[in-house]
Design a protein around this nucleic acid. Structure first.
Lengths: 139, 139
DNA sequence: ACTGATTTGTACGTATGTATC
DNA sequence: CGATACATACGTACAAATCAG
C-alpha cells in the first residue's frame, strides 16, 4: 500500500503535513481512486510510525482540501469529483465563493472542504450553490 | 467578554462545536470586530471550563470557515472581509470554486478557509484567484 | 435481531518547540 | 531577556457509528 515513502523525523516539515503530502500524492497518482477507502487511522499510525493524533491531523488537511471524506465509524474515502452543472451568469449578476458555516454545511448536505457559490441576481436575489456540483458560465 | 453563554456539558452537541457556535455568534454580533484578537486558548479553556485541545478544535472550525486567522505565537484574530475586485465572465468562459491544496495556499498567500476561483477562458486558459479578493460578474 | 470487532469522534492530559510580544 | 501564546506530538479513555458474521 505504498509505504515506500516514509516520514522524515528530522525534517523541518511537521509529520502530519508530511503524511498529508504522501497520501495526497498517492491519491492524485491514482493509487487510491474515488470511493476507495484509505487505510484506517491505526494502520496509518503503525505504517508510518507516528501517533494516531498525528495521523488525524494529516487527514484533516486532506478533508479541508475536499480530497477525502470521513464518516463516523467508516474509513476515510477518496471523494469522487462530481460533474458540475452550469449556472449561466446573466449580465449584471454577481457571484462569489466562500466556505459555508457549519449550519449551512448541514443544511446543504455538504462534506467538509466544499465551498459554496453565492450568486446574486441583478435584482438582488441571493442563491447558494454547492461548489462541487455547480460551475458558472458567461453567456 | 461575553462568557454569559456557557457550555452545556450534558448536551448532545460536542463541546468544541458549542464553543465555535458561541464565538461565531459573538463575531457576527460584532462583539469581536475585524482585526480584534480572540481571547487566548488558555483563557478560553478556563472561561468555558474545557480542555485546551477542545478549544483548539473549536477554533479550527472557525478557521476552516474563514472567519478567523491564527498565526503562531499570536492570538487568533477576526478576519476582515476584503473588498472583492470584479472579474468579468466573457461569453464561453467557465468558473468553478474549490479549496486550494496546501502548496497552492502558500503560493497564493491565502489563509485557511479561503477557496480559490478557477477561471477557464473560452480558449482554455486557466487562472486562479483567491475567492476572498475576487468576485465574478456577468457581462 | 444480535453480537463482537473495527473504526472514527470527543475529551482530557502532558511535554517540548518556536514565534511573538 | 522573560512572559505569553500557538504548533507539534505523544498518550489515554470512553462514546458512538459501522461492519461482519
Amino acid at each position: 500500500m505504498a509505504a515506500e515513502r516514509r516520514i522524515d523525523f528530522t525534517a523541518d516539515r511537521a509529520r502530519y503535513r508530511q503524511l498529508a503530502d504522501i497520501l495526497r500524492d498517492a491519491i492524485t497518482a491514482g493509487e487510491y481512486r474515488p470511493g476507495d477507502p484509505l487505510p484506517a487511522e491505526q494502520t496509518l499510525a503503525q505504517t508510518y510510525e507516528i501517533g494516531v493524533d498525528t495521523v488525524r491531523d494529516g487527514l484533516a488537511i486532506l478533508r479541508a482540501e475536499g480530497l477525502i471524506e470521513t464518516e463516523h465509524g467508516r474509513r476515510s474515502r477518496v471523494r469522487a469529483a462530481m460533474k458540475r452543472a452550469a449556472l449561466t451568469m446573466a449580465p449584471g449578476a454577481r457571484a462569489m465563493a466562500r466556505m459555508p458555516t457549519e449550519a449551512e454545511r448541514r443544511r446543504l448536505g455538504l462534506s467538509e472542504g466544499v465551498p459554496i457559490l453565492v450568486v446574486t441576481s441583478p435584482r438582488g436575489h441571493v442563491s447558494l450553490y454547492p461548489a462541487d456540483r455547480y460551475e458558472l458560465r458567461g453567456e
